[in-house]
Structures are given as structure tokens and as C-alpha cells.
Simulated assay, not measured.
Amino acid sequence: MKIVVSGGGTGGHIYPALALIREIQKEHKDAEFLYIGTLTGLESKIVPREGIDFQSIHITGFKRKLSFDNIKTVYRFLKGVRDSKKILNQFNPDIVIGTGGYVCGPVVYAASKLRIPTIVHEQNSVPGLTNKFLSRYVDKVAICFEEAKEFFPPSKVVFTGNPRASEVIGKDGIKGRLSVGLSTTKPAVLIFGGSRGARPINEAVVKGLPDFSEKPYQVLYVTGDVHFEAVSKEVELVGNPQNVVIKPFIHNMPEVLAGIDLVVSRAGATSIAEITSLGIPSILIPSPYVTNNHQEKNARSLSDHGAASVLLEKELTGHSLVQHIDQILLDSKILHDMKQKSKKMGVPDSASRLFKVMTELVNTKRK
């Protein structure tokens, strides 16, 4: 099968696409892939490093307010469609899948006009503009949250989960703990604010360090590369408790997650897919700076099912953070109950589910 994948802008659109590609490659060695992105997005650096063929088009996103730039974007979209058709005709794919970001717009739209089977994958509970637009033209819309159903044509929607979930299954949690200097005997909480970190979370953790020093659990605190130096200076002033391990970044996150009892993080779709597939309880601190406040809606989806606790950024302090952790990690009944409910929400076979939908669609179109 020849597959075109398009997704870009943020890691939340790119990493699920790469997870899907890797999962398909395991079972289908003869599958061919082409990734279409932009030269300005993260995908232009990440995808080629994975050894996947990459081609680019030039496109920008729409402004949500009235702007002259939107006229330019319409022109770029139309040119992007023409460029995409050329690339698609040369590669001759069996199917095209978009995983989000504005680059998907012209690519997936062009594929639909060429009568190539098409799918968009929506990771969040509230979809972005591009996927809403494309849902009118694609054959299927794959979702990760039941709440996303209402935004798309019902006949096209299929629940698959996020392919990233498949990549964290079967990892060695003990090895993961040892790789970052954690004890294998004490309960462990992982605190992080995404790949680049989050200043409000960092500030709360630093203020909570004196309290953490007295706890019977251990903390793995990931600052994000850009914040590590500043955080290190603040930690020097208040002291670094022996039960708190501080890192700028975790390169083997799936392995480390396998050994964690509780996660404190933002409510990005990829993080949620990973922690629920492993059945890890979480304290979610949604970013208030994202489109349509979708992170809070992602977080509420978990908290409504008892799999997570939501701590809004405006309520985040060192004290409230430690209090939330204590309420879960120091109560074995609550911890066990949340683990079970988190596990129920996980979709560990999400990549294979999505590929099955793709295969069925290709076979139907061929008939």
C-alpha cells in the first residue's frame, strides 16, 4: 500500500502521524510512505530524521479575525492544492490521511478531488478549523474523544483513538525509572509541562519543593529545555530535596511513563493518549492559551469519567499542587480507582484500529 500522510505545525499533529507510520511498518514491510508538510513547521526537521520521504508545500493558516492576510492565505491554499495534486499524481497513493494542522487543508482537499480515499484524524475533543473544513470532503473522520462526534457528519465518524498510545505499550517501567535516577520501591509522580515546559507549572513546583521533601513518594520534575537554567538557579536558593529528580527533558518518555504512578501535565491530546493507554491517573493543568480552550475540554473528558483531576492554571500554586498530589497518591483506594478508570479510557490498539479503517476504505474504493 502507498500512503500519503500530512500533518504539521505542532508535535501534537506530527507524533501521532509518525506513530501510525511506525506501527504500519512493523506489520507491512512493503508499505510506502510520503509525508507532505511545510518547510517552516517542525515536521520538516522531525520527519526526515525518521527516514521517511518528505515533500513540502507553502501554506499558512487563517487568522480568526478579519485580516488582509486571509486573502493571501486563500491564494496560497489554491496554489497549495495545485502543488499537492502534482505531488499526489507523481506518488500515486492508495490513500491520504491528514493528522491536523493547516498543511492538511490543501493536501487532503486535493486528494479528495482526485478521488483518492481520504481520512482526517482529529486528536482533540474540539476540532480545529482545518479538520472541520475537510470533514465535508473526506471519506472518514477518525476521532479520539467521543465529544468530537458532534462537530462532524455522523456517517463519516469512526472512533480509533490516538496512534501515539500504541507506542507506550509493553515498555519496561523499572528500566525507565532507573534511567532517570528514580527509586524502584517508592511511588513516583511525573510532573511536566509539555516538550518545551510551562512556566506556571515550573513556578508552582519550585514553591512546592519544601513540602515535597517531607513526602513518602518521589517526584520526577521535567522543566523543559528552555526553562532548565532559570529553574536550576531558583532550586539552588530553596534546596533540592533528595526525593525530587529534576531533568530538562526526557528522551525515553514511553519507557519512563511505564514506571510512573501519577502524572501531572498539560492536557494535550498526545499526553492523554499515552497516560490512558497505560492506565495512569493524572492531574491535568490545561493550557488556557490554546484555540477554543480545547485542552480544558480534553481534561474534563477524563475527569468526568473519574480518570483525572483538573487543576486550572488560575488556581495553581505550590500548595494546591502538592495538595492535589497527596489526595491521590497517598490514598491507595483513590489511586487504584483512578487507575482502573484511566485504563478504561485508553485505546492501546489505536494505530491498528486506524490502519484497519484505512485498509477497509481502500478496498471499498477499489471495488
Rank of each mutant, 00 (worst) to 15 (best):
N252H: 14
E150T: 13
G193A: 05
V244Q: 03
P163I: 08
R266C: 06
I191G: 07
E150K: 12
T160R: 09
I174M: 14
S213C: 01
K156R: 01
E255Q: 08
R196L: 14
Y221R: 10
E203V: 08
L257G: 11
E203R: 05
S155Q: 10
G197H: 00
P200I: 10
M253R: 02
F249E: 00
V141N: 03
N243H: 07
F212T: 07
A230G: 13
S183D: 01
A204S: 03
A258T: 02
G208P: 11
S155W: 05
N162W: 06
D172I: 02
K171Q: 09
A198L: 11
V157A: 08
V235Q: 01
T160N: 03
K247W: 04
R266I: 04
E167Q: 08
L257C: 01
V244Y: 00
I201S: 03
F192V: 07
T160M: 11
T223D: 00
L237N: 11
F152Y: 07
L182G: 08
P200T: 13
K149E: 08
G268S: 09
E146G: 02
Q218I: 00
G173S: 04
D261P: 02
T160V: 11
R266A: 02
K233T: 15
A258F: 01
V168H: 02
L209A: 04
V205Y: 07
K156D: 06
G208L: 07
K233F: 14
P248Y: 01
I250P: 03
F159C: 03
V226C: 13
A230Y: 15
D211V: 09
D211R: 14
G194V: 13
K140H: 12
I250Y: 11
E255H: 04
E255K: 07
L178S: 13
E234K: 15
Q218P: 04
G259H: 05
G259Q: 05
A230S: 15
D139V: 06
K233Q: 15
I250F: 10
V180E: 02
R199Q: 13
G193S: 08
P154R: 04
P254F: 14
T185C: 05
K140L: 02
H227S: 06
Q242M: 10
K156L: 08
E146Y: 02
A230M: 15
R199L: 12
F249I: 06
V235A: 00
I169Y: 08
G197C: 04
E203Y: 01
I174G: 12
D172S: 14
H227T: 09
R266G: 03
I169R: 10
I246K: 14
H227Q: 09
V231A: 03
V264L: 13
P200A: 14
F212R: 13
A148F: 04
R199F: 00
P241C: 05
V226T: 15
K247L: 15
E214D: 07
C144S: 15
G208M: 11
F159L: 02
A198R: 15
L220S: 07
V180A: 05
L190P: 12
